[in-house]
Design a protein around this nucleic acid. Structure first.
Lengths: 127, 127
DNA sequence: GAATATATGCAAATGACTTGCGCAAATCAT
DNA sequence: ATGATTTGCGCAAGTCATTTGCATATATTC
C-alpha cells in the first residue's frame, strides 16, 4: 500500500493489537524508537484518511484511535479511569433507515457510547 | 438560585432557546454586551456543573451546549455545515439494563449521534 | 542514477479553553 | 446599615493536544 511506511505500519499494528482505543501520547510511550510526535499525528491522520482506523474523543478532547473491525464502534467509557470496552449490540443499524427517511438525512456513520463507572473503579470506590 | 448571575442567566436562556447545541463563540457573537470569553467559559462550566446544561463535542473538539430537557440527547450531526437536529427514538434506554448486567458497568449517561449530510447540504451538493 | 515526490524531525504556531490576579459586586456577620 | 469575606468578571498570560512551515532524509519515478 502506498505510503504505508514502517512507522505507520507499526502504529497501525499497535492500534490493532490494543484492546481499548488509544491516543497519540500512549502510542509515543510504547514506541521504542521515539519518533517525533508530529510524525505520529501525521501517521494517525494518514491511517484515518485511508479508513484503516477511526477515532473518537469521548469528550476528552483527545483523539482515541481504534480499528473499526475489532471494535463495533459502541463503547462503555469509564469517566473515572478513562478505560473503554466495547459492547456488541448494534441498535443503530436497526433504526438508521427509519431516521434517514423521517429526517431526510444521509447517515454515513454514528457514535454511540455509554458513560459510567467500570467495575474496577466501582470496587475501588473512589468518589 | 445561588450564583445565577445575570450573565449566566442570559447564557442559559440562550442555550434553552436555541434549536441546536451551541458553542462559546456563537454565544459570544449573539451577546450584545460582549462579556469576556473567559466569563462565558466560566458560566458554561457553572451551568454544566449545576446540571442545567449538557455538552457534546461531536468530535470537533469544541463544546456544544444544550438543555437536556429540550434535547433527548440524540443528534443528527451534519459533518458539512455542523448543524445538529435531534431525533426522538431512545434506543439506549431499552438496552441499558442489559448492558449494565452483562458488563457489570454502572451507566450514568450516554452519547448517541448519527453523522451524515443534512438535506440542505445535500441540495447544495458540495463535495 | 538523476529528478521528483513523499516522509520525518524540529521548532514555532494554532485554537479552544483555563487560570492568576486585581477589582467590583454581592452576601454575610456583627 | 456597615464593614468583612466571598464570589464574579475582565484582562492577560498560560496550557495542551494538535497542526504546520521548513529543511533534511528517504523513497519512487523516469
Amino acid at each position: 500500500m502506498k505510503g504505508f511506511t514502517p512507522l505507520r505500519k507499526e502504529i497501525y499494528k499497535m492500534i490493532e493489537d490494543t484492546d481499548s482505543p488509544i491516543n497519540a501520547d500512549t502510542i509515543y510511550k510504547k514506541l521504542d524508537n521515539k519518533p517525533d510526535l508530529s510524525s505520529i499525528y501525521r501517521a494517525l491522520n494518514y491511517l484515518e484518511k485511508k479508513g484503516m482506523v477511526k477515532s473518537l474523543t469521548f469528550d476528552t478532547k483527545i483523539n482515541y484511535y481504534f480499528t473499526p473491525k475489532k471494535h463495533p464502534h459502541h463503547f462503555l467509557y469509564c469517566k473515572k479511569c478513562g478505560k473503554t470496552e466495547s459492547f456488541d449490540v448494534c441498535l443503530a443499524n436497526e433504526i438508521q433507515k427509519k431516521i434517514e427517511d423521517k429526517h431526510n438525512f444521509k447517515i454515513t456513520d454514528h457514535v454511540f457510547y455509554f458513560i459510567g463507572i467500570c467495575k474496577e473503579c466501582m470496587k475501588r470506590g473512589e468518589t
